[in-house]
Design a binder for these strands. Structure first.
Length: 190
DNA sequence: CTCGGGATGCGT
DNA sequence: CGCATCCCGAGG
């Protein structure tokens, strides 16, 4: 059970969004350790991606997206829910992977199918914004046995769909940038 | 300063 | 489909 290194995040965002499926997200809060297995993600591809927050340019909110890879970008949506993203690629790319659903593994406090719900269940709030994922509070590990997910077996294991709730993003809304483990019961909006 | 809308989720 | 609920970003 090894913490994923910086180099894992410092790669093409679509690759990260797919290969992060099956990894375990760990949040240590107080003396409680919560763990969920990532089963659904979305890729947000930098300033040119009209669906990405970074498309509006560098602002106080999106600052983290423009920073180095392997950090958490957490924001509040609709005044009620938090969403967890993981910054990818070189500093300045302003790309990230949104974590959309988890399979509960340990100490999850409520439902985990949906980006807002999983943050509630994992007790992830804006206090986690900017967290380095090489820290001991919030990080990812590759569980053992290693998940059998390979790029050349996408058709078997990874479902690809358009992203949710980004109809305003014109042609970017049509791209298949939402990834999930095919057949997994914890994927959102079945 | 105001104001409109949003990478959501739940109840009807 | 409506609504809860509030931060953010744009514009005056």
């Amino acid at each position: 059970m090894k913490k994923l290194p910086r180099s894992f995040y410092d790669r093409d965002t679509i690759r990260v969004a797919q290969e992060i499926l099956g990894m375990h997200l760990v949040h240590r809060n107080g003396n409680i350790e919560r763990i969920g297995r990532i089963v659904e993600t979305e890729a947000y591809l930098g300033e040119h991606d009209l669906a990405a927050h970074s498309a509006k340019g560098r602002t106080p909110r999106t600052e983290i997206m423009f920073g180095p890879p392997g950090h958490a970008y957490v924001y509040l949506i609709y005044g009620m829910y938090h969403c967890l993203n993981i910054v990818t690629e070189k500093e300045g790319h302003a790309s990230a992977v949104l974590i959309r659903a988890l399979e509960p593994i340990q100490n999850c406090d409520g439902r985990t199918s949906g980006p807002g719900l999983l943050c509630n269940a994992m007790h992830i709030t804006k206090a986690c914004n900017g967290q380095d994922l090489l820290s001991d509070e919030l990080f990812l590990i590759e569980p053992f046995p290693k998940p059998i997910l390979r790029q050349n077996q996408d058709k078997i294991f990874i479902a690809k769909r358009p992203r949710v709730g980004v109809d305003y993003a014109r042609h970017w809304a049509k791209r298949l940038l939402r990834f999930s483990i095919r057949g997994n019961a914890w994927v959102s909006r079945k």
